[in-house]
Nucleic acid binder design. Sequence first.
DNA 1: CTATATGCAAACACTTTGCAGGCTC
DNA 2: GAGCCTGCAAAGTGTTTGCATATAG
Lengths: 131, 131
Amino acid sequence: MDRRNTIQRQLVMQAVQGLDHPDAEEVYENVSREHPNVSKGTVYRNLNVLAAQGEILKVETGDGADKFDFRTDQHYHLRCRVCGKIFDAQMPPIAPEQFLGDTHGFTVERHNLEFIGTCSECNKSGGQKNG
Amino acid sequence: MDRRNTIQRQLVMQAVQGLDHPDAEEVYENVSREHPNVSKGTVYRNLNVLAAQGEILKVETGDGADKFDFRTDQHYHLRCRVCGKIFDAQMPPIAPEQFLGDTHGFTVERHNLEFIGTCSECNKSGGQKNG
DNA sequence: CTATATGCAAACACTTTGCAGGCTC
DNA sequence: GAGCCTGCAAAGTGTTTGCATATAG
């Protein structure tokens, strides 16, 4: 766990902070713009390192590529099922564990709550998709 | 949308009903046991058709392969971050939308709530993993 | 009969990894 | 200067798809 503060790591961190729920590809493009020599493998590795350290959040949507979030406090997301974009939900953290019955030995560590639907952009363009 | 009730489709449906949150691979193995000629592509296609028709539920965990669920009523899952298995949560459906503020034009259609942690099996074997 | 479904294999999207050399501390 | 980190490219995992043929309705 003896981590080093490489240029590449800093660039990846800055990209995540400067973008809105980017995926690895978007982070790579953003970093590449100024530093074309940084490889995609390094971007993936650093995203994982930063997420493991808790400095960023990996958002596994199960719908295409994973997204990354500079907000690490407990919060929830809206996910558009048409374009896949993620938005922060305006909603306070809840304690759903209080409604949870017997878990049969399962130890709950955290929870995810996501709202699925269509974003305002996709609503406009009438872009529908089965769902 | 003129669907046909093929043997393969029925076999896939039965496999999902007979297994506990299987992924496509498990469904394929289960079907193959008695019908080795059924191809994996057909299993994937039918899982998607059945999910689109609402006869089964596709559970996108973002952690490895998608899982499938014969329960289609609103309910929640516990997901083990060590072995990836999914369990039904003992918890009534909630209406989190009532806590949700301005969505800026995003139309919410449904929500997912999942609890992440370690299952009783993995607790026993002391199988830890970063998390 | 005809459109939907199948089997097969190749292609796909996203992510991880082995290796030799480079850089941080 | 020890060992984490990088760039590159290849490999890995899970899923979709093009095509010719088969089959449900």
